[in-house]
């Protein structure tokens, strides 16, 4: 077992729990920063310095973007309904299951040496097992906020946890992605964070608007068409409509 990698895996798992369960935007973003900042280090061999730097900087940038648009405002909908102890229990359970899965998978890979007769339990904590465990933990605790979160920030936190969890699980299952795929994942994280930040800005703009569900909403509850899809230019050129 590599103690440094075990520490990184613990930090990623703890960050995922904090991000998914915190009711404060700043704390949730600190947790997300732990996941996105430390996640790229959970690989053996480590990617090159440039790729590693790009992954970490992207993570920090995504967190900063979300911080800039939400931290100074109230962010409704944050926090887990089941509370952080339950989230922690789920994350630890899934992480242990991930480590066990990785041990099983290692026995299937013909390129790896056969396991020792009486292995030390800590030997199971290989880099692949740590990545798979932390990745599955991050993925599972991110699912609820990603798909049932009400606000942009909670949805963004959930989706980013799922992406990073998937990448870590992929690292544990099939080895670290190639350099260009790492950059592609960087692009995905950045676009996801920027899109969520954009939606958060629109939400903030809505604070001055009327409540949803007013006359601008159609009878079926869908957005009223006449208001969406128009721009200032349309208003200036009424004949164009």
């Amino acid at each position: 077992m590599n103690p440094a990698l075990a520490g990184v895996a613990l930090a990623v798992t703890a960050g995922a729990v904090i991000a998914a369960s915190s009711r404060e935007a700043r704390a949730a973003l600190v947790g997300l920063a732990l996941v996105l900042g430390f996640g790229p280090f959970l690989a053996e061999p480590l990617p090159g310095a440039a790729i590693l730097g790009a992954r970490v900087v992207t993570g920090v940038l995504v967190v900063y973007l979300l911080w800039a648009v939400t931290a100074s405002n109230e962010s409704p909908g944050l926090g887990s309904r089941i509370g952080w102890p339950a989230e922690t229990a789920i994350a630890l359970g899934v992480a242990i299951a991930g480590v066990a899965m990785a041990s099983g998978l290692a026995s299937l890979d013909p390129s790896l040496p056969p396991p020792a007769e009486a292995p030390d339990p800590l030997d199971a904590l290989t880099p692949a097992a740590l990545a798979l465990g932390a990745g599955l933990a991050s993925l599972v605790v991110g699912l609820a906020p990603a798909f049932f979160g009400r606000g942009a920030l909670r949805t963004a936190v959930g989706l980013l946890l799922v992406v990073q969890g998937l990448v870590l699980a992929r690292t544990g299952l099939a080895g670290p992605p190639g350099a260009l795929e790492q950059l592609g994942i960087d692009g995905l994280l950045l676009t996801l964070g920027t899109s969520a930040a954009l939606i958060a800005i629109i939400e903030r703009r809505s604070a001055g608007d009327a409540e949803p569900g007013d006359s601008r909403r159609g009878d079926d509850g869908r957005p009223a068409r006449a208001t969406i899809g128009t721009t200032d230019r349309d208003a200036a050129m009424p004949s164009a409509r």
């Binding site: 990603a146 798909f147 942009a152 949805t155 989706l159 996801l192 899109s195 969520a196 954009l198 939606i199 629109i202 939400e203 703009r205 809505s206 608007d209 009327a210 409540e211 949803p212 007013d214 601008r216 909403r217 957005p223 009223a224 208001t227 969406i228 899809g229 128009t230 721009t231 200032d232 208003a235």
Partner: peptide, 18 residues
């Protein structure tokens, strides 16, 4: 750059993002 009802636009954004 859409100037509609902001809550509706934000909701639409989340429904497209997921």
């Amino acid at each position: 750059w859409l100037h509609g009802a902001a809550p509706d636009v934000a909701l639409l954004g989340l429904r497209l993002l997921r």
